[in-house]
């Protein structure tokens, strides 16, 4: 998607000067403030991917939680399709929330370990409440198929699935509500390389077929560049650099960006192999 088309289409998500402070009460003395988000602004356009990259503790996850309405921001504004999320009543928030789904980092923790795959998949459908019992089963099967899982996994427990299968299940569950925005909070970080690539491809396929919008949160600059249309680098609760992936990769301006870039593992063939003992 080009810069010109951004101007004509409305952004799906607009974040303006978002601040989130946590106050930690110390046993003795004053209240200590932790500034998780310190004035963050960005927009995400429909059908595109914005990657937020940063080290741990830079406020990425807080941002994700604020957007997904799990946390109330201290100040600043959030717009989703021109609806401001800050002044919403609990009932309206619940409706908006369904359109913003979060995929968690640890797929082992994001499912009730006592539930079968089918129960997990139908939970959002049950909660949404506009499908009858008979319609739910085929819908769940369709969701499994959509993320490339075989339909006979339905009776399995999440502990019986592999890491990649679990993350596919997480995506399938989120898709059940037909969300407009999918927040991927370190969704690939717990997987090994080849599985990461498979899930990344799945995400790109889904974006192409469903026109999904992604907020991809990661510490992996290379994967972010592979997936995203735009990258924002975060450090200490602020966005320190923002731009197209090629630009960030070739001309990193901020020190943090350079450090993250240096952390990307590369196959260096010029180095001699380790001597065998």
């Amino acid at each position: 998607m080009t810069a010109e088309s951004h101007e004509t289409s409305e952004p799906l998500v607009r974040v303006e000067n978002l601040v989130k402070h946590y106050s930690k009460r110390k046993l003795v003395g004053s209240v200590e403030e932790v500034r998780a988000l310190d004035g963050v602004s960005f927009s995400i356009f429909r059908g595109t991917t914005l990657a937020i990259v940063g080290e741990s503790g830079s406020g990425k996850s807080t941002l994700a939680f604020c957007l997904a309405c799990f946390e109330k921001p201290t100040s600043g504004n959030l717009w989703f399709e021109e609806t401001s999320l800050s002044g919403l009543k609990e009932k309206d928030r619940r409706v908006i929330r369904r359109q913003i789904q979060l995929i968690f980092q640890d797929p082992a923790n994001s499912f009730n370990p006592r539930w079968s795959v089918l129960e997990i998949l139908t939970e959002p459908l049950v909660l949404q409440g506009n499908l009858s019992r008979d319609e739910m089963h085929p819908r769940a099967q369709a969701l499994l198929e959509q993320v490339g899982l075989s339909s006979h996994l339905g009776e399995k427990l999440p502990s019986e699935l592999s890491g990649g299968q679990r993350q596919r299940l997480g995506i399938a569950r989120a898709l059940g509500l037909r969300p407009k925005l999918l927040i991927l909070d370190e969704a690939l970080s717990a997987l090994d390389c080849s599985v990461q690539a498979q899930i990344a491809n799945l995400l790109m396929e889904l974006q192409a077929s469903l026109g999904m919008t992604y907020l991809f949160i990661s510490h992996d600059l290379a994967m972010a560049a592979h997936l995203a249309d735009e990258i924002a680098v975060m450090s200490r609760g602020q966005i320190v650099e923002q731009g197209a992936p090629e630009e960030i990769l070739t001309h990193p301006e901020n020190r943090i960006t350079r450090e993250l870039l240096a952390a990307v593992p590369r196959l260096d063939l010029s180095r001699p192999p380790l001597a065998e003992s």
Binding site: C69, F70, V95, I100, Q101, F104, N109, L127, Q128
Partner: peptide
């Protein structure tokens, strides 16, 4: 998973 369910409304 409790967070997720909250997210489903």
């Amino acid at each position: 998973f409790v967070r997720a369910a909250r997210g489903f409304g």
